[in-house]
Every structure is written in C-alpha cells, then in structure tokens.
Nucleic acid binder design. Structure first.
Length: 295
DNA sequence: AAGGACACCAACCGCTGGATA
DNA sequence: TTATCCAGCGGTTGGTGTCCT
C-alpha cells in the first residue's frame, strides 16, 4: 500500500498575515472552482501557502456570508446560553449564529464575554457565582467521604453541564451532537414563548427573554445571601441581560422572595441545585446523557 | 510625546476521527 | 491491516492598534 504525498512542504510555505493579492487569488479560485480539495488550492491558485492555511483564511475571513460587524447583544445572549449548555464547542455555537465563525465566537468569548461574567462575580466556566463555588468546594469535602470520593465524583460533578458536555462527546457523530443542540434550542424556544406570552412585550425589545430555568447564569445575580441580593450587575453587562428587570434589579416577585428566603438557604443548596439540575437535564434531554448512566 | 499596558483578533499549533493508499 | 493524510476543531500565540500614565 502506498502513501499519499504530503499536501505541502511545511518548511517552505509562507506564514503570517495574508496580503490583498493572496486573498484575491483565493477568491478567484473559489469563484471558478468552488470549494473542494484544499490541498490542491495553493498549487492551482498560485499561492505559496499550506492548504490548511488557505482553508482557514477562507472559512474565517473570505467567505461571502460572513458578518464582519460587531456582535449584537442578542448574539452575545445566545453565546452565553449555548456556552452554559454545551461548553466551549465553538463550532456548534457558531452554527447557531449565521455569519459567525467558530473563531469569531471563540475570540469574542475570550476577549469580552468571559471578562464581563468575571466582573459580575460569575465563573465563566460554570456560570455560577464565585462565592457559591467556594462554599460548594467546602460542601463537597464534607459530603463525600475521602475513601469514596474518586468514585462518587463521577456522579457529583461540580459543574452541572460538564456532564452534558461529556455525554455530547460520547454521542460521537456530529449529527447527533447537532440534534442535541437542536433540542436545547427547542427548549429555549418553548421557554421564551411561554415567557413572552405571560408578559407584556415591548415593541422595541430586541432581547430574547432569559428562560426561567434554574440553569440561567443571570438568575445567580442574586446570591444565596441577603447581602448579595442587594447587589446589582455591572451596567456594562446590561445589554446582555437586556430588559429583564428581574435579572437586573433582583426585584421581581420571585427574586424578592428569594432574597427574603435567602436567610433560610444553606450553602449546601448549591450542591442540591446541581443535582436537581442534573435530574432535570436527564428529564429534558435524556439523549444528552445517554451513556453516562453506564458509570 | 513616549513608552508601557492592555485589548483585540487573525493566524498558527496540536489533537482527533475519518478517509485513503 | 496499517500507516499516513486531511478536515475540522479548540487552544494558544503574536502582531497591531488603542489607551493610559
């Protein structure tokens, strides 16, 4: 059995920023030949670049359907939701945002959204308040006996969606991951429709209402103690939160009640919350967690 | 005005799974 | 069957512009 030749001589191809001339060659090539075997593109288009580099340049910058303007608050909202639900699967998230690439979404997350969440005291990985994570860390040490911890941790992952994340990996085929994402989409849509029908909608409102699911990061703007309930998020993140005043003010009826009840809420509530969320995830998206029960 | 710090983002790197010879 | 390539993906880096002191 023979070997295929390598796509290019890595030591002699050009690297670094693309010139207008190189861009024009790619565009001309794609216009006349379409998208096909990228390894042949450098040779056929007259470029001293690796095929992989050509593909990246096309997919991340030259594609005609790409948006080059800044992210809208609605797009940021979607990124936050999807990141909370499926983690850093940028390509899947980007698929939900027409005209955006995985690189766009990833860069925007790393440079803007992650910082905004941190500034609000919310862990960008778990989408939970830092204070809750710290108290939960203590709770886990108390709840799980040392000699069984390594086994039990598989059933008590501190990050609620990391399990969904792992299960998505187990699903394997991209189609199944996409199907799972579609179900999450449907879930958001149902919640949004319910929310919008129960509240008077403003004509100028461009935000999608945050679902009233226990997974929503902004719900944690009101903390688990009375002091935190009085805190308001940084105004710079309001475009993300939108006009959801319960998230902003913490003064919605339920939120007020949460504040009043806060004194009776123990720090263990976070762990219980995660377990409840996990059960709900299994109920809502059973296929997401397929295979996890094997543990 | 200078230069250091910071933010942004295009591009690269390395890994993985499927395809191919 | 095996070794290798390729496309796709997420993580990381480095160049450039902007802001701040």
């Amino acid at each position: 059995m023979g070997r295929r030749p390598p796509c290019c001589d890595k030591s002699h191809v050009k690297k670094g920023p693309w010139t207008d001339e190189e861009d024009a060659k790619i565009l001309a090539y794609v216009a006349s030949h379409g998208i096909g075997n990228w390894t042949l593109v450098p040779q056929k288009a007259g470029l001293n670049r690796c095929g992989k580099s050509c593909r990246l340049r096309w997919t991340n910058y030259l594609r005609p359907d790409l948006k080059h303007d800044s992210f809208t608050p609605h797009e940021e909202e979607l990124i936050l939701r999807y990141h909370q639900a499926i983690g850093s699967r940028w390509s899947l998230i980007a698929n939900q945002l027409p005209g955006r690439t995985d690189n766009d979404v990833k860069n925007h997350w790393n440079t803007k959204l992650k910082k905004k969440l941190s500034k609000m005291g919310i862990d960008p990985i778990t989408h939970k308040p830092f204070g809750q994570l710290l108290s939960d860390y203590g709770n886990i040490n108390e709840i799980i006996p040392r000699n069984t911890r390594s086994l039990d941790q598989r059933h008590h992952e501190p990050m609620d969606f990391s399990r969904a994340d792992s299960s998505l990996t187990m699903l394997g085929p991209v189609q199944e991951q996409q199907a799972a994402l579609n179900r999450i989409n449907a879930h958001f849509q149902v919640i949004n429709e319910a929310a919008s029908s129960s509240t008077s909608s403003s004509a100028s409102k461009v935000q999608v209402n945050l679902p009233s699911s226990p997974f929503i990061w902004s719900d944690y703007l009101v903390g688990d103690d009375e002091e935190e309930c009085t805190n308001k998020p940084d105004p710079s993140v309001l475009p993300i939160i939108g006009e959801n005043t319960s998230a902003y003010n913490g003064l919605g009826a339920d939120q007020r009640k949460n504040c009043l009840d806060a004194t009776t809420t123990t720090s263990a509530s976070f762990v219980e919350s995660i377990l409840n969320q996990d059960r709900e995830m299994q109920f809502e998206f059973p296929q997401l967690l397929d295979g996890y029960s094997e543990y």
